[in-house]
Simulated assay, not measured.
Amino acid sequence: MLTEDQKRTYYEDGVLVIKDMIPSEKLLNYRDAYERMVEKVRAHPNAKEEYNARLIGGKTNTESPTEEEQKEIWGADWLLHPDLYEPEFTDYLENEKLISALQCLLGPDLELYGLKALWSPVNITYDLYWHRDGKQDSYSTDGGIPPGWLQWNTALYREESFHVVKGSHRRPLSEEESTIYGTTKPVANQEVLVLEPGEALFMHQAVLHRGKALSTSKRRAFHYIVARTDFAVGTRRLRQFKEWYDQLNLGQKLGPISKPLFENFFAWEGRTFDDNTYPYPPGGRSPDKKEQN
């Protein structure tokens, strides 16, 4: 359960850090599981297509990254893929403190939206551009309330990766912010948020932010997303997740807190809606979307 001060912080700043989201006694196991996943992603010759791995490409402050540097991997989107799945990835969702906090902001009925991972490359710093997770001109008109879904990062090691302009989710971008949008240039009022191991950072989709991780650091972060059950989800993602869920027999393995997240998600099966409205389609991203966080 969030305090009134925590909710106010989220609404006003667009970000909220919550301490001790991963219990200390579980942290080592989570790290080990995460490392096994990273090594499998890195070892796969076609990780981009198989696991929707995130590649550096041109997204770095290095002027001319080499071809090999551009292939550096800094994340993967398909933690439910049977090749990558570890029980710790869903055990994290079996977390009353986490679900209670999400319910305080989204409401009581939640569904799964994404299980992803972000980490530091080996040989090159990734330095992403300033962006909003949506259209550049989008912002909250209702006091910072989440727009049907909420994303959060959870650090397994100490990290200083998240750069943000607090409060930018509640207003149009300033002239300066519009000018630096899509670049890594400094901007007024930017902050770097420090996460200690086990801490979670909730973020509003419209807050102006970017990510950075040095190759000399060891960033290992979960990047998860849930939504309200009245928020439409993509049928392609649903079918893919359902296939993996059944293949892993998760229906028999998940606990009473995490299982409803999946069941609510799968309840959309058979309904009709426009897949183009779904912001994270399988196999990559919509043509007008950019990789984020």
Rank of each mutant, 00 (worst) to 15 (best):
L16C: 08
L16E: 01
L16S: 10
L16H: 11
L16I: 14
V17Y: 13
V17G: 10
K19V: 02
K19N: 14
D20S: 11
D20A: 15
D20L: 00
M21C: 10
M21I: 13
M21A: 12
P23S: 07
P23V: 01
P23I: 11
S24W: 00
S24F: 00
S24Q: 15
E25G: 06
K26E: 11
K26C: 10
L27G: 04
L28R: 04
N29E: 14
N29H: 02
Y30C: 07
Y30A: 14
Y30R: 02
R31I: 13
R31G: 08
R31Q: 15
R31E: 12
R31C: 09
R31F: 06
R31Y: 02
R31T: 02
D32N: 08
D32M: 03
D32L: 06
A33C: 01
A33H: 08
A33I: 00
Y34N: 03
Y34D: 09
Y34R: 03
Y34C: 03
E35S: 10
E35W: 12
E35K: 13
E35L: 03
E35V: 01
E35G: 00
R36E: 02
M37D: 00
V38K: 15
V38D: 06
V38G: 11
K40E: 05
V41G: 08
R42L: 14
R42G: 07
R42W: 11
A43T: 01
A43W: 02
H44T: 00
P45A: 14
P45I: 12
P45V: 13
N46T: 01
A47R: 10
A47H: 14
A47C: 11
K48Y: 08
E50L: 01
E50W: 00
E50N: 02
N52V: 08
N52P: 09
A53D: 06
A53Y: 03
A53R: 12
A53Q: 05
R54W: 11
R54I: 07
R54E: 10
R54A: 06
I56P: 04
I56V: 15
I56Q: 07
I56L: 15
G57M: 03
G57Y: 07
G58L: 13
G58F: 14
G58S: 12
G58W: 05
G58R: 09
K59M: 12
K59W: 13
T60D: 05
T60A: 04
N61A: 15
T62N: 09
E63S: 08
E63P: 09
S64P: 00
S64I: 11
S64H: 15
P65T: 14
P65R: 08
